[in-house]
Design a protein around this nucleic acid. Structure first.
Lengths: 170, 170
DNA sequence: TAGTTTACGTCAGCGTTATTGACTTTCCAA
DNA sequence: TTGGAAAGTCAATAACGCTGACGTAAACTA
């Protein structure tokens, strides 16, 4: 497998771009770009004793208000203990509210407070600004390709969460 | 700015795809895809008491043999203290060798040992497999767009490291 | 050439984040 | 109604990042 040559080039055009070198460039592009992707919100979060985990929780609670802890767990892909610590501080600081479920009292439904929404706006504005600039520089076709590859790279479960969120916002 | 409507659509075709909703989908795609991107090597690393930081170090030492600690610092974007802990274990375990510089004895030049190269192969094979499959599913044009957007998303310094590595391998 | 400054790498200590394990409450089904 | 399963919480441990302080080597300067 690791013959340093990548896929055979028998079919020419179709597989030429799948050399190990090209793949490695894709890997490194992912690495460097993700750093840029998180840099702006991270800078903001440092000043308020929060971390990336808080950002993620706030993002998805805003995206799916009323979601349960268990649901959020599946989306974030962390253990509930990790999430719990984050949620506890967010609730203590008045950014998130937790309501006991009506039909199932074991569940907690999560919502952002006004303060939580404000922080969410600040954070995603910073992140969107970079994304908007990158999208504009790259052009519509590149953006389409970008998303196609990203979707193909997800684990099936993640892809499912992704599409479900996407559809819920139409 | 955050009017929930994104860029104006006066120019039609050109800016239509830059709504906040589209940007948010891009953000979420990045999040879910990056998880997939790191999932396979992570699984391997868990079994040997290593983490993602070790993988990154091994990757770039393999990519640029003889690189100095300081050079690696710039690429990885961490403090030298963080890197040092990782390097210490890798050297102790015989995966990396460190040679004192000839012209400048303050420098340490880093190389993978045979064992280090073997681990690097194992890890990047896993990562490349997913990348290859995603690239193949998405097609050459999508891949080109993928990289264009990613490059536009990097910080200028990161973009510089990225191109320098890319060019060094021709 | 001697003394100061700068650069490279290393060691120690701290805070945050994620994980595994054990526990309480609630729901559901035998 | 009792046993098991699920949702959420609490406690303790390991991994990774950071700031601060240090020793050594090179470079600058007087």
């Amino acid at each position: 497998m690791a013959d340093g040559r990548g896929a055979s080039s028998q079919t020419g055009e179709n597989l030429l771009f799948l050399t190990d070198e090209q793949l490695r460039q894709g890997i490194e592009a992912m690495f460097f770009a993700y750093r840029g992707f998180t840099a702006d919100p991270d800078k903001i979060l440092v000043d308020m004793a929060y971390g990336r985990a808080h950002h993620r929780a706030i993002h998805f609670i805003n995206r799916a208000p009323g979601t349960t802890v268990n649901n959020l767990l599946g989306i974030l892909g962390v253990t509930k203990q990790s999430l719990n610590r984050v949620l506890r501080t967010l609730i203590a600081d008045g950014l998130v509210k937790s309501h006991v479920g009506k039909s199932d009292k074991r569940e907690r439904h999560l919502y952002l407070t006004d303060a939580g929404r404000a922080l969410e706006q600040t954070l995603s504005d910073a992140q969107r600004m970079r994304m908007r600039s990158a999208f504009r520089d790259a052009g519509p076709e590149a953006v389409a390709g970008f998303r196609t590859v990203l979707e193909a790279m997800m684990d099936p479960e993640m892809h499912h969460s992704y599409t479900r969120l996407k559809e819920s916002s139409t």
